Simulated scan of single mutants.
Amino acid sequence: MAMLLESWQTQSYFPYTVELKLRNGEVYGSVSFEIPTPKVKHTKENGVIAIDTNASPIHLATAEVSKTGELLSYQTINLHHLIGLSQNSKDHQEWILAHQIVDLAIQKNKAIAIENLKKLKKGKRGDGKAELRKRLHHWNAKKFLQKLKRIAILKGVELVEVNPAYTSIIGMLKYAPQLSTDKDVAGAYVIGRRALGFKEDTPENYERLLKDKAYLQFALKRYEEREKELRELMEKESNEYKRNAIESELRIVEDSKKLLTNLIQSLQSESSSCEGADGRNLTWQVLKVALLFPILGKVLPRDLSPLKPVLVEGVWDRVRSRLVPLEAGGTVPIRDFWSSLRGIVWTSER
């Protein structure tokens, strides 16, 4: 609209196409014309503002990354206010947010880095993830990123799209505990580093953990116990959707057992490898399986800080030694291990 107004005021016109349509007695018109692409002024030579989109909860995580790969600042932007809005109102709010992020990049004189989302996971009916599908229905991250890309081009900001493979896992395991941030900010940080050309090496203590047969057997035992619990829950549960959710977790547990079993077997044959059948490097996937549930008790925990002693000091042997059967029966809960390590006093639930 600003271009059209300026053209009328200066009488410096440009070619355009007008299309008129008659619909229910009303005439609708659309005007099409090319917008000149400005020169890119803000590039990744000065670093990036990296964006990570998340559906549960619905929000954005941004990370300002220096040209040398350091995390300078970060924030999370809650998007729950978009739920329940009409499509037009939602689009309007997304355009405003896209402008704000691009303006931030201009202020910091940096490029913008995003994931190259070719296919957004939407789930399917009956998979036990109805709440996630509902959130994805209310907010389409891919459409927002398209808006962001368009505004960046119009304002002369370089936009870098990166391969999203393992960005979330690397963020969770490497940077969230190390920098004391949540997993989404850590994921955005990895996106930013990848956009700048940095490669993520596996931390030394994590490499040692993947060669510790005793720990891997402990982790495998944890999954075997969880598998037994889930199968018992399946037999008792009559609700179809709850059964689907249990079955979904059961498949994750079975896949995790398979990864750990293959790694233990490769250690026994003295040919340690984290490659999949298709030749892909599965190191980060195996680390996720070996660390999250066995130590934290959850497949996708929000708090990753308990991993810091493992990452920095390599103390997974303490986890294994503290989770041995007691003489009176049962095992020592993981929280007791972390409370002793971090000096936290827990109140017993018994």
Rank of each mutant, 00 (worst) to 15 (best):
L5P: 06
S7D: 06
Q11M: 05
S12L: 13
P15G: 03
P15Q: 09
T17A: 15
E19T: 11
E19Y: 13
K21N: 14
L22T: 13
N24G: 12
G29S: 10
S30W: 08
S32K: 15
I35L: 14
P38M: 04
K39N: 07
K41W: 07
K41S: 10
K44G: 15
K44M: 03
E45T: 11
N46P: 02
G47M: 01
A50S: 14
N54Y: 04
P57S: 06
H59E: 02
L60Y: 11
S66H: 01
S66W: 00
L72A: 01
H80W: 05
H80M: 12
L82H: 05
G84I: 01
Q87E: 14
S89M: 15
D91I: 14
H92A: 05
H92L: 13
I96S: 03
A98P: 02
A98G: 07
Q100D: 10
Q100A: 13
V102D: 07
D103F: 02
L104C: 12
I106V: 12
Q107V: 08
K108S: 05
K110P: 08
L120I: 11
K122Q: 12
R125D: 06
D127Y: 00
G128Q: 01
K129H: 04
K129R: 14
A130L: 10
E131P: 01
E131T: 06
H137G: 07
H137C: 05
K143F: 02
Q146W: 01
R150Q: 11
I151K: 10
A152W: 00
I153Y: 03
L154E: 13
G156F: 03
V160M: 07
N163L: 03
P164L: 07
I169C: 09
L173D: 12
K174E: 12
K183E: 08
D184F: 11
V185M: 04
G187R: 05
A188D: 00
A188R: 06
N205K: 05
Y206I: 04
R208K: 15
Y215A: 09
L220D: 02
Y223E: 05
E227Q: 14
K228R: 14
K228A: 13
K228F: 11
R231E: 02
K236P: 01
N239K: 08
N239C: 12
Y241I: 08
K242G: 08
R243Y: 11
S248Q: 10
E249Y: 09
L250H: 07
R251S: 03
S256L: 01
K258M: 14
L260W: 06
L260Q: 02
L260V: 12
I264R: 12
L267V: 01
Q268N: 15
Q268Y: 07
S269F: 02
C274N: 15
E275K: 15
G276E: 05
G276H: 09
T283H: 04
T283C: 14
W284D: 12
L287T: 00
K298P: 00
V299F: 14
G314V: 04
R322I: 03
E327Q: 15
E327L: 15
D336W: 11
R342K: 14
R342L: 10
W346V: 10
E349R: 14
